[in-house]
Each structure stands twice: as structure tokens, then as C-alpha cells.
Design a protein around this nucleic acid. Structure first.
Lengths: 242, 242
DNA sequence: CGCTATCTTGAATCCCTTCAAGTCGCGTGG
DNA sequence: CCACGCGACTTGAAGGGATTCAAGATAGCG
């Protein structure tokens, strides 16, 4: 981590201050939020909330990566979303979650008790406006992902995934074009609707094709950005939102 | 159609009065909306908006069915949502649409010019609250569908689809358990991430299994509801939201 | 009555999965 | 320091479910 988050700093120094649900809030509104919040950290691999659990808190992801997923009776798992810093967990007007939320890396949450938070949402339009904006962005992203899951080949899925990782990578300095792959092969497979073997095979093919180069299992660089995009199956301008 | 919608009736008689974006509005707010609205009808098969088009209007679907879809360069198409009466088209804060919107049946829209409508959203919390609620419901539905697209078999997809149609069927009297199939085999295929041949084959299998009976290509009845649910791959309580 | 779009069914093919056998990398402890 | 063990990953071979290509059946409509 190049960046260390310090819980004692106020909202003003919060790394997600300008992208989270509080993005539009003014100083007064921030003070109100400040009085309600508390932090919680979760270790990589731990489940944050199980599907069907009571939603006692509403949270913003401050640092780390979490996943949203569902598992069918027989164990087949599908990831339905990746939560990055500034994304929120929970929703007003519903008291249970529909998906399992799991910490992919170590995670820090900024939490609010549900009841007071819901009241606050009604009273501070800046919060509800921002939440709607974020919900609609997520909806577009989810629909983009549906196209991938329903119609793309394994190769196209991998290419689209890598392109998304690169686009969303917020590493301050893209150190020599190196990017971190935050997921294991199995997690990638569950995200793309594939098996881990197919993910591994397709990554090998793209290595051989000179599109991507791995320095180790978790670090890669794109060596041919155009070829990567051509392999996604998307048209020139069309891009994923997520 | 058992129900005939009459444009001359006020919002008070509107069939989607209590489910659309206006659901929470009081009488005064309704008057304001009433002054802005206009109706438009679209024939089955016509495109309502193309992906990338400027979003000049914001609309609620009053009657009929529309689809949201995207087509890749080479013609592969994935439907990402079915729009039923009360669903809305467009989103505040963005001026182009990300997906093609097509009338599956004849469709009636209740439209608002975008600029005045966006202003109204900011001023009437009852509208923005309801829109957020609807957006979050759609998000859950989209994520449910991602599980289907990524992990379910053809048979499970078909079973889930039929179950969804039955659950959402609003036919006043379920005439003898008969339901209307509003989509062609090809449209179903594009919705489920399959080919039309596979859809046809799986429907035949389920007929032979005594789960569903077709009176003609567009009308069916579920003859074994439990077997249908067992074939979806979902657990007992878990259900799609869409 | 016959045309045409829609749908069904069959046969061959293919891409991804499944099953299986290694390889790699890293932390642990002798 | 290196052997050991284990989880993560890679690669191969076989199998299967969905697609593709093709032919025919059905139904709606002029």
C-alpha cells in the first residue's frame, strides 16, 4: 500500500471524500455525518455480510476491495460486482442483503447505523442525490457485465476483464505500466462465469500472443493495448462503466 | 388486451399511478407532473431509442413491453432488461442512453422533456425517492440475472425465465392458468444468452417432462409448479426480483 | 389456398468444462 | 539453509452441453 489511511483524521482527509455518498455534501452536512460514523476493518477472505443477513449498518468502502456474489445450492458461484473504495454497501428501504459481501483484500469500512442513516438520507438531499447517481452507475455497469456473461467468449471475457482492471487501477504512479491483479484465478473465474482452468489457459494464450506480460502471478503489464481492446469484442468507443 | 388505456383520463386513472415514479406523489405534485407530460405510442418491433442517442425525453412505460439490449459488432445480441408498465426510461444526470430500447409489443409512453423533468426531480423529493427505490430494485434484478447468465444451464435458464413470466403476469384473471409468452424464441434466446434452437429444444424437453403445456406458441400453462421451481437451480426461498 | 415468418428437430462440430497430473512459489520448521 | 508442505496455478486429455448448419413442420395472414 502506498497510502495509509488514518482513522483519526476527519472526513476532510478521507481518501474517498469526493467520490463516496458524501461527495456532494457541504461542511455542515459533513459534520452531521462525522458524528454518526464509525470504522471497521475486515481481513482478506472474511465475509462482511451473508445473503439474507439483517442489514444493521450502512457502509462505504474506504480502502481495499470487496466482492458481491451469490452461490447456488450446488456450489456454483457467480460474482455480481466488485466493490472498490467509495462504493457503498446496503440500501435504504430494504433490511436484508441479496448477496454475499466478502473482503477480497483487507478492507476498511466507514459505517453508519441503519436507522439514523435512513433518516439522514431523507433530510440531506445531497446524500440521496449522490446515492442515486451511484446506483444508476452501478446499474449500467451491471448491464454491461450481463452482455459479457451472456454473449462473450472466454478470450473476450478475459480481455474485457484486464481492460477493466487497467482502467480502474488507481495506483498513483503506474509503476512501469505494472498493474496489480487483485483476484485469484478462481475469483476471476467466478467473476467471468468461467472455470479457473479456462481463465489460466486464456491468460497463457494472451501471454503467447504478446498482449500481456506477467512478472509474477499478481502483477502484469499490457504490452499491446490495441490488441487487448480488439480482443474484447467491444466496438471502439463502447466501454464498460464499472 | 382486457384493459384499454385512455389518454384523456387524468393521472388519477393512470394504470401505473401507484407503481411508477409518481407513486409517492400527493395531489399537488401530481398536478405539476400532469402539466409536463405528453403521451407517445410506439408500434411493436420499432426502436424507441438507439444506444448513444441523445436523451431528449424521460419516459414511463404505461402499457406494453419494451426491451433493453446491446448488440456487439458481429451481431451477437444480449437483452439486459425487460421493461414492463411503470418502469422508466432515461436517467437524470446522463444525456445519452447506453442500450437500445425496443418496443416488444405496442407501447405507450408517458413522456417528460428532460430539462424541466430534471429540475422537477430536484424539487420533488417524492419523485427522486421513488426513482432511487426503482433503480435499486432494477439493480438487484440485474444482478440476479447475472447469476443466470454466468452459471445456469440452458434448462435452468428456461425454467427461471418461465417462473419469472408467471410471477410477473398481471393478467387480471389468470384465465385457466394460461399465461402469455410476450417474446419470440429468438428474443427469449437473447434474454437468456442462448440460441433460439436451444430455447426451442429445452421448451420441448420441459413439455415432455410434464412441467409446461403450450396451447399455441404464445400461450402456456405450468402443469407442475414444484418441478418448475426445482428446475431453476435456485433454493427454496430465493427468487428473482425482476 | 399458398406464402412466409416462426418454430421444431436432427446431425455434426466446437468451445468450454471436467478430471487428472504436474509445476511453481512461499512460509514454516527442523 | 534447505526440505517439506500446501495453496495457487498451469497444462493435458477426454467428455459434454450448447452452437452451428441444415431440413422440415406449423401457424398466421393475405
Amino acid at each position: 500500500m502506498t497510502f495509509v489511511f488514518n482513522e483519526r483524521d476527519g472526513c476532510g482527509k478521507c481518501p474517498i471524500r469526493h467520490r463516496a455518498i458524501c461527495a456532494r455534501c457541504d461542511a455542515d452536512e459533513l459534520v452531521r455525518l462525522e458524528g454518526l460514523k464509525s470504522y471497521k476493518t475486515i481481513e482478506a477472505g472474511q465475509t462482511i455480510i451473508w445473503r439474507g443477513d439483517d442489514l444493521s449498518h450502512f457502509s462505504s468502502l474506504v480502502s481495499g476491495i470487496a466482492s458481491l456474489s451469490r452461490t447456488l445450492e450446488d456450489g456454483r458461484t457467480q460474482m455480481v460486482g466488485l466493490l472498490l473504495p467509495s462504493d457503498f454497501i446496503g440500501r435504504p428501504g430494504r433490511d436484508v442483503v441479496e448477496f454475499d459481501v466478502t473482503a477480497v483484500t483487507d478492507v476498511t469500512l466507514c459505517r453508519f447505523d441503519r436507522k439514523p442513516f435512513e433518516q439522514l438520507v431523507d433530510e440531506i438531499p445531497h446524500v440521496s442525490q449522490r446515492m442515486m447517481e451511484m446506483a444508476l452507475d452501478e446499474l449500467d455497469a451491471a448491464r454491461d457485465w450481463m452482455v459479457l456473461l451472456g454473449r462473450k467468449t472466454a478470450r473476450e471475457k478475459i480481455a474485457t476483464f484486464l481492460e477493466m482492471i487497467v482502467r480502474r487501477d488507481q495506483t498513483p504512479v503506474h509503476s512501469g505500466g505494472q498493474h496489480v491483479l487483485p483476484l485469484t484465478r478462481e475469483e476471476i473465474a467466478n467473476f467471468l462465469g468461467l472455470t479457473l482452468e479456462t481463465v489460466s489457459r486464456q491468460l497463457s494464450v494472451m501471454k503467447k500472443d504478446g498482449i500481456v506480460a506477467f512478472s509474477d502471478r499478481r502483477h502484469f503489464a499490457i504490452t499491446d493495448l490495441e490488441a487487448l481492446h480488439a480482443a474484447t469484442g467491444d466496438d471502439a468507443d463502447g466501454g464498460m462503466i464499472i
